[in-house]
């Protein structure tokens, strides 16, 4: 369908191919997340100018890295479902329920539990189970993932509030908070944990059958199935894995604030989705990976940090993030794949 726009798009793509062919272009294409690195550079430039260099102070950089840790973990979780070509909006609900569970099972002022380090596998189990349900609803009951995960989020959030009776539970087991606040060689430990998770997922995506098949499904589910990929099994596994990682994030949130409440899950979906899109993971599926999730999160967190430093009205943040989300998706969506955009 040729329209005025497609003609200018053609000129754009001719220009693009000319640039691509050049030496600079070759360098650009050989580095996987080069576009995002440049964007980060631009963000850093704008904000360091706007804050007279304060933005790029080592202490601020460390702050940004520390702030990015939990969103990065969430982004690492959800981006895999998106690579599959599905959607997972249950992030907030699963975090709520794992946070509340952690609050009640660790040594706290309300119940007599004290599971200590066992909480780590426990939250992963709870999150993983919730994720498995998501996977089953999508594969066995053949429900579109975005509504089934949305329903799950509401359900789990409600359960979380019921269990916690709507209030926050102070934690008495202080070990976790110590770890969260600590630093390792000057870098916040949480950030290192997030990067380690990113590394694990990177290896999984590139060096295991699960990873390769995940990309195959995202590329074209029907063809992948024809080639023998066990689509249902992989989808359920990925949803489950995603749920487990949400669980870890929930635990970290509890550790950081030394208390737990169901509302800790709130307002986490939006930044995670923005990070996914900004990082270059295509909503159509099959494209992007852990690297994209990591850099996408850093860009979004840095952006918000910059806004705060420049003392831009905090309530503008939602608007800025909204615009960034829409723009990022506009740029990365593969229109050839999605014949019909709903």
């Amino acid at each position: 369908m040729k329209t005025k726009n497609s003609r200018s798009l053609e000129n754009l793509s001719t220009l693009r191919s000319k640039v691509s062919a050049s030496a600079v272009g070759k360098l650009y294409h050989s580095i996987p997340i080069s576009g995002q690195i440049i964007s980060l550079g631009i963000v850093a430039l704008i904000f360091s100018l706007g804050t007279n260099g304060q933005f790029l102070h080592v202490s601020n950089i460390m702050t940004v890295l520390g702030l990015s840790a939990i969103p990065m973990i969430l982004c690492l979780a959800v981006h895999q479902v998106i690579i599959l070509g599905a959607m997972d909006l249950s992030l907030e609900g699963i975090v709520a329920i794992t946070a509340v569970s952690a609050g009640l099972l660790l040594k706290n002022s309300v119940t007599g539990n004290d599971v200590g380090l066992w909480i780590i596998p426990i939250v992963m189990l709870i999150g993983g189970l919730a994720g498995l349900v998501n996977g089953l609803l999508n594969t066995k009951l053949r429900m579109p993932s975005f509504i089934s995960t949305l329903g799950m989020s509401w359900t789990l959030f409600g359960v979380a509030i019921m269990i916690s009776k709507g209030s926050s539970i102070p934690l008495r087991d202080l070990r976790f908070q110590k770890v969260i606040i600590s630093e390792f060689l000057g870098i916040p430990t949480v950030f290192i944990l997030a990067i380690l998770l990113g590394l694990v997922l990177y290896i999984m995506q590139n060096k295991t059958k699960l990873g390769k098949h995940m990309y195959a499904i995202g590329g074209n589910e029907i063809l992948a199935k024809q080639a023998g990929v066990k689509v249902d099994r992989i989808k359920i596994s990925i949803f489950g894995l995603t749920g487990m990682i949400y669980g870890l994030a929930g635990l970290l949130l509890v550790a950081r604030l030394n208390s737990s409440a169901a509302r800790y899950g709130n307002n986490l979906l939006f930044p995670a989705m923005t990070a996914v899109a900004v990082g270059g993971v295509s909503l159509s599926g099959g494209v992007g990976g852990a690297l994209n999730a990591v850099i996408g999160t850093i860009i979004v967190v840095a952006l918000n940090n910059g806004l705060v430093l420049m003392q831009i009205n905090p309530y503008m943040q939602s608007a800025v993030n909204g615009i960034v989300l829409i723009s990022a998706v506009a740029l990365t969506i593969d229109r050839n794949k999605i014949g019909i955009i709903k």
Partner: peptide, 27 residues
């Protein structure tokens, strides 16, 4: 407009715009 013109799935468009409208309300 954003959904049709830029071919962005509506749940992204409206997830983003919800934030924008709330910000305007706060302003």
């Amino acid at each position: 407009l954003i959904n049709s013109r830029f071919r962005i799935p509506s749940f992204i468009t409206t997830l983003g715009s919800n934030g924008i409208f709330m910000s305007i309300a706060y302003m």
